[in-house]
Design a protein around this nucleic acid. Structure first.
Lengths: 243, 243
DNA sequence: CCTGAAGTGAGTACGATGTACGCGGTAACC
DNA sequence: GGTTACCGCGTACATCGTACTCACTTCAGG
């Protein structure tokens, strides 16, 4: 674990640009952003597990080892992907209404995570915080500023929000996989019997109820998300210092 | 991605025991639990990333391919590890006081996650729900039963709680790594300059504040956790149907 | 303009990985 | 006792991350 942490920290120098201006030698043929984008494309098309240095390099028309001029390691590239995505999409103007702004933030995060099922695994447990993520962090913190919360209360609150979003999207994707009307009916067909057996055993009444409920003509995921979000925001509001 | 899902579902047959009683041939030399335990030991000692089929097998005194009589794939083994840990530790008797029981559950989860930093990566995004996890799910749902919540409200609530616990522990571990007085001072020494540079740039006031605050003589993590937990439980209580 | 240093892209090679395949041995059934 | 199903495990292969190396390109200093 010490080794992994050590590997992780060396990524920082690349993430933060390492602004020693070049003097000699040929100009770099690529940029970190291009490489990250290629990796992102690959992950979008074939999944995160098939993002390899060779394939990313091939997509750029070069060899695997060339990437190491830009990226410390594969883990570093993964971190770069995570930070790149944060940087690519613009943030809407803040309105000043914290509940609305926080809600918009949550909606944006959910959308991003739903768009790329591999993203949450990249974002989660990312000790190497990139510049884009930090900017996003600052922005989110600013939403909570002026509500009378202490700095660590603010930190914990957005931690809570982020954790919830991630967990919610995760379960959203899982439910999709189980009984999704999405284009994954092969999964459903193969998984169904097991779920059915578990339900038939009668030992798991709550699980059974959840599944049968989810199967029914339920309100759409958007509405579920909005409902939970509202509850969460209400909880935050209720525990505000001003009572 | 379809490939990964397909791989995931085949794990279920192993997770659920596949109770076709054996008839012919030699008795199996190992059990799934033994294998999972060996893998868990390995992960505890050397980290999750160095859990390989060969090393796990070596720990059992056998060859890598022998494991495949018990486990569908490496991913399946990882799932097995996750479910095994849930099954290994006993749950305390429920008191009937939902806030207390839910709090105890949260404390237990936190302890388990802190004990094994690799665990949250295993638990997160685990669509293949094992029997032990399902039993735990049922138990947690039963805590919330009788409060007037609908089944999906209950589901969402424990989803929220789980997501928060995971996120909280994650940030707890991250803060430890940055400025922990734990035995990771090499990480601190190498990471410090970057954090310092970010802080000195003056562009990230909130981040700076969080770090300087965390560095100070703060109250211990236990207390932080308890405080947030209390807040979360209060939020749940506040949105109960009975008002 | 020349020379050397700095920095580039990329090829080769190595160890480690997950696992498909197949073999020989073992235990229960007919 | 023969058949059959199942066991443990060795071999082999594709693929992975990346250490090392080298030729080539550019620019600073003479």
């Amino acid at each position: 674990m010490a080794g992994k942490s050590e590997a992780r920290l060396s990524n920082l120098s690349r993430l933060w640009g390492d602004q020693t201006q070049r003097t000699r030698g040929p100009a770099p043929a690529y940029t970190c952003e291009q490489i990250a984008d290629a990796a992102i494309e690959l992950a979008d098309e074939e999944g995160l597990e098939s993002v390899s240095m060779r394939k990313v390099a091939a997509r750029l028309g070069t060899g695997a080892m060339s990437l190491y001029r830009y990226v410390e390691s594969k883990d570093s590239l993964i971190d770069l992907m995570g930070d790149r995505i944060v940087g690519r999409e613009g943030w809407p103007e803040l309105t000043g209404d914290w509940k609305r702004d926080l809600g918009d933030f949550a909606r944006g995060q959910r959308r991003a995570l739903l768009e790329r099922p591999w993203l949450s695994r990249v974002w989660s447990g990312m000790p190497a915080i990139g510049p884009n993520m930090l900017r996003g962090f600052e922005r989110t913190m600013s939403i909570l500023d002026g509500l009378g919360l202490g700095i660590d209360d603010m930190f914990e609150t957005i931690g809570l929000l982020n954790a919830w979003i991630d967990g919610h999207v995760q379960s959203e994707l899982a439910l999709r996989a189980y009984f999704g009307d999405v284009d994954d009916e092969e999964v459903q067909r193969a998984m169904g019997p097991y779920v059915q057996a578990v339900m038939d055993s009668g030992e798991y009444p709550y699980f059974t109820q959840v599944i049968t409920d989810a199967q029914g003509p339920h309100d759409d995921p958007e509405r579920r998300f909005e409902r939970s979000l509202e509850r969460l925001l209400a909880g935050i509001e209720a525990t505000l210092p001003g009572r």
